[in-house]
Computed example of a mutant assay.
Amino acid sequence: MHEQNPALGLVHVLRAVTVEFDLLGAEFAARHGLHPTDVRALIHLLDATRAGTRATPGWLGEQLRLHSAGTTALIDRLERLGLVRRSRDTADRRRVLLEVEEKATELGWAFFGPVIGEVLAAAEGFEAAELETVRRFLTSVLESVGRARSA
């Protein structure tokens, strides 16, 4: 058996983790009558909230690479399900902002909370410097994938 490149081994583990998270997301979507794109939209909106980004329909469409009509249909569906709400921007009344409803957060925590708990427990076995190395590596991978997607 030949010796495997350690970096390539990381790629394989990262791919396996990505597949497992994708399957978990698909199970969440199916359980709640959502499309996988709906789940990605909710993730983007939650990330925007954490980052302090004011999410608009146009912004969300760019993140998901959807055209205007597709984005509107997706937001309408999420709003109808009580997962997202539209509101007017107080600074610019022409602009619509998107916010995740508490119901969506509760559904997410009920489903993904145990996995998040296990990941946090696994992280406890690592030193702070090791976790920082993992964070830097994953951030670099994320940037690499972003460059490949925009090429």
Rank of each mutant, 00 (worst) to 15 (best):
A121V: 15
G61Q: 02
A73C: 00
V39N: 07
R149F: 13
E27Q: 10
T71D: 04
V115F: 07
A128N: 00
V19F: 06
W59S: 01
H35A: 14
L66K: 03
R149P: 00
A129E: 08
R95V: 05
G61Y: 04
T53V: 15
E127H: 03
R65A: 15
T72Q: 14
E3D: 09
A69V: 09
H67A: 02
E3K: 13
A51V: 08
E130R: 04
R85G: 02
S140V: 02
R147K: 12
Q63R: 15
F126S: 01
G146L: 06
D92A: 08
F28N: 00
L97P: 08
T71A: 04
G25V: 01
A129L: 07
F111V: 02
V141S: 06
F111N: 09
L24W: 09
A129N: 00
M1H: 13
D47F: 13
L142T: 15
E62T: 02
A26N: 07
T71E: 04
S140W: 07
V145Y: 11
L60K: 00
D76L: 12
L64M: 06
H44N: 00
G9C: 02
P114F: 02
E106Y: 03
S150M: 05
R135F: 05
G58Q: 14
L138T: 15
E102W: 08
V100R: 03
L23F: 09
G146S: 02
H12I: 09
L98N: 09
G146A: 00
L60V: 01
L45N: 09
T49K: 11
T139G: 14
H35F: 10
F111A: 05
P114R: 10
P114W: 07
L97Y: 06
L107S: 11
F111P: 11
L97S: 12
R149W: 03
G9D: 06
T37M: 09
R65M: 07
F126N: 00
A29L: 03
L14P: 04
A7T: 08
S150G: 03
G70F: 13
V19T: 12
E20G: 01
L78P: 11
A16C: 04
G125A: 12
A128K: 10
V96D: 06
E99T: 12
